[in-house]
């Protein structure tokens, strides 16, 4: 499949992206902040097990799109199907149930600072275990063991008792990934997961993140400013400019010159 690049115009997702069951399907999403349309009719489809990178300059609408998919931000127009559920029509409880199946990794990791690393990872089970997962001290043995196993996967089991606000940026993001794995998600959304890290730590964490999500077989949609990450860790690259999708192409090294145009 060749790259589809349209300057200034929205485009339908590339043909391959709609084959097979779509776990994420957005149709005509519009989100305005004041008079500015941050998303201007975005349609996107991501198949089960697919890994898609969303690229675009600051303000292009990448983070807003991810947040609209799970209604952390309410879209003004458009429809979204996530894991077959019509997100916009769900009540509060049904939305909470759906979110349990969707991992979300934030740029600023968003750990609870005064709690231990282990408690932060146990929080990943809040959706299914409720108040039993508010703190590692009250969590059942099985949850604690699972949390330690998740920490092991990101190489931080030794820091389980350390307070989250004493970790480095890279360690914090690894803990955030462990928390997301603890959730046992079917879909993973990641908003510039390594943007706050230095290049070496960013490379390391991104590689780990990609490996773990591939092993878990989850569908992955992540935003990034790093072209090499988009090409190396995604099956497909979707480019946003001015709130519209202007690129939808399979990820391959030859795409680099096209991606560069998004940051000029």
């Amino acid at each position: 499949m060749t790259a589809v690049v349209l300057d200034g115009a929205a485009t339908r997702p590339a043909a391959a992206s709609t084959a097979g069951p779509a776990e994420i399907a957005a149709d005509g999403l519009v989100k305005r902040f004041g008079r500015t349309a941050v998303l201007d009719g975005v349609s996107l489809s991501v198949r089960r097990g697919e890994r898609v990178a969303l690229i675009g300059a600051n303000g292009a609408g990448k983070s807003t799109l991810l947040r609209c998919l799970v209604r952390l931000v309410e879209p003004d127009e458009g429809h979204t199907l996530l894991l077959g559920e019509p997100v916009g029509r769900l009540g509060r409880r049904a939305l909470t149930r759906l979110r349990r199946r969707v991992g979300f990794v934030f740029q600023r990791h968003n750990l609870v600072p005064r709690q231990s690393v282990l408690t932060n990872v146990v929080h990943g089970a809040l959706g299914r275990a409720g108040l039993l997962a508010v703190h590692q001290a009250v969590a059942p043995a099985a949850l604690r063991a699972e949390a330690v196993a998740c920490l092991d996967r990101v190489g931080l089991a030794a820091l389980a008792r350390q307070r989250a606000d004493t970790l480095s940026g890279g360690q914090s993001q690894r803990v955030a990934i462990a928390r997301a794995l603890m959730q046992r998600p079917e879909v993973m959304l990641a908003d510039e997961p390594v943007a706050s890290l230095d290049p070496a730590a960013g490379e390391e964490v991104m590689a780990l993140f990609a490996t773990l999500t591939r092993q878990a077989g989850v569908t992955l949609l992540f935003t990034t400013h790093t072209m090499t990450h988009a090409i190396a860790y995604a099956d497909r690259v979707v480019g946003l400019r001015g709130g519209r999708i202007v690129l939808d192409a399979p990820a391959h090294p030859g795409l680099a010159p096209v991606l560069e145009r998004f940051f000029e």
């Binding site: 952390l72 979110r99 979300f104 934030f106 600023r108 750990l111 929080h123 108040l131 508010v134 997301a180």
Partner: peptide, 19 residues
């Protein structure tokens, strides 16, 4: 930030308050 993260993973209101 942490509240949004826990809301995103499907935690209920009381769990977010306590956690």
């Amino acid at each position: 930030g942490p509240q949004e993260a826990l809301a995103a993973l499907g935690a209920g209101r009381s769990a977010i308050v306590v956690s």
